[in-house]
């Protein structure tokens, strides 16, 4: 037992948890082809969850602001992307990958622009007056979520909106008896690319250095001569743009979306950041993958208990590590 601890630590510590879950699921599921399908689905969902959750986590880490309205950006991203794809219906359905990709890029760009703009508005109008006051912060951002959801309802209506998928992302690849949806692989790649981008930003640039330092000790960064509030609005906009991209990707994954999407994702996103640990991007990715794998495996084994299983997992992890698996150093 004594040698096991350091060995696990050396091999990656808590980052081995998804592997452990996958192995356990392999045993429980029994059928390798189903397991592969579920694992790929879990990983791709995990990266979409990461997109949705990363902003929330960073914003909390940097400014101690918990934005309950964060999932509104997810909804907005989903609906804006769906609308753009519907407008560009001709390109989406065309037989040319070029036009397909163009429509997709347009939809995602629209989601990014909208998300960043909504983030700017949110930070300036909703969050700024209630810094340092957690109680009012929670209440106000929650109120903002309700308003945002109602605006979506008023704009797009209560009936499910259809999301057209670009032609080249339709279909599935058959691999050793398991079918892997192309869209899921695509979502996975997008998530990995975005993660790499954020990782680069945080670890290789001066702005990233300031963000990481600000997450640890905001006052000291200011005492060294930097304005954190200006940095913060940038991070807030980045976070909401990422959430919007996550929403756009999710919309394509679900293909049918309702205004309740944000509220549904909010709970999962919260579980992700609590499990992963607030303030760290690695932690958020870890939490997202763990939650998504659980969701898919349990959804297959005992469909009704998918959300409850994640809740139990969160409770267990909090008992074990009160700050989550890999929180930012404070």
């Amino acid at each position: 037992m004594k040698t096991l601890g350091p060995m696990i630590e050396k091999a990656g510590g808590v980052f081995l948890l998804p592997v452990a879950i996958a192995i356990l699921a392999f045993v429980l599921i029994g059928a390798p082809s189903s397991w592969l399908t579920l694992t790929v689905a879990g990983l791709s969902m995990g990266l979409m969850l990461f997109l949705m959750a990363s902003g929330l986590s960073l914003v909390f880490g940097l400014m101690d602001v918990l934005n309950f309205g964060h999932s509104a950006f997810v909804s907005f991203g989903a609906f804006v992307a769906a609308t753009v794809l519907a407008w560009l219906g001709g390109w989406v359905g065309a037989d040319s990958i070029f036009l397909n990709a163009l429509a997709l890029i347009a939809a995602i760009s629209a989601a990014i622009v909208f998300g960043a703009a909504a983030g700017w508005f949110f930070e300036r109008v909703i969050v700024k007056p209630v810094y340092k006051d957690h109680l009012r912060q929670i209440l106000i951002t929650m109120g903002a979520l309700i308003v945002a959801e109602q605006l979506i309802l008023a704009t797009w209506g209560g009936t499910p909106t259809n999301v057209p998928r670009p032609q080249f992302l339709e279909g599935a690849i058959i691999l050793g008896g398991s079918s892997l949806e192309v869209y899921r692989l695509f979502a996975f790649i997008v998530g990995v690319v975005v993660y790499a981008g954020i990782y680069f930003l945080l670890n290789k640039t001066r702005i990233g250095l300031l963000i990481r330092a600000g997450v640890e000790n905001r006052e000291m960064v200011e005492a060294l001569g930097f304005r954190i509030d200006r940095l913060f609005i940038g991070v807030f906009m980045l976070g909401s743009a990422l959430a919007a991209v996550g929403g756009a990707m999710w919309a394509g994954y679900e293909t049918l979306i309702t205004p309740a999407l944000g509220a549904e994702m909010m709970v999962i996103v919260f579980i992700v950041v609590i499990i992963g640990g607030l303030g760290s991007i690695q932690g958020t990715l870890l939490g997202a993958i763990v939650v998504a794998l659980m969701q898919n495996y349990v959804g297959f084994l005992a469909p009704k208990l998918a959300l409850a299983s994640n809740m139990l997992l969160m409770m267990a992890i909090l008992l074990w590590r009160p700050s989550g698996l890999a929180p930012a150093v404070k």
Binding site: R206, L209, L210, R212, E216, N217, E219, A223, L224, F226
Partner: peptide
Amino acid sequence: FVPENMGIFGGLTVAENMVL
């Protein structure tokens, strides 16, 4: 300013602390 708790960024390297 060198505060009482020193205000070191523990997650950053010594070099990064200095660069900041």
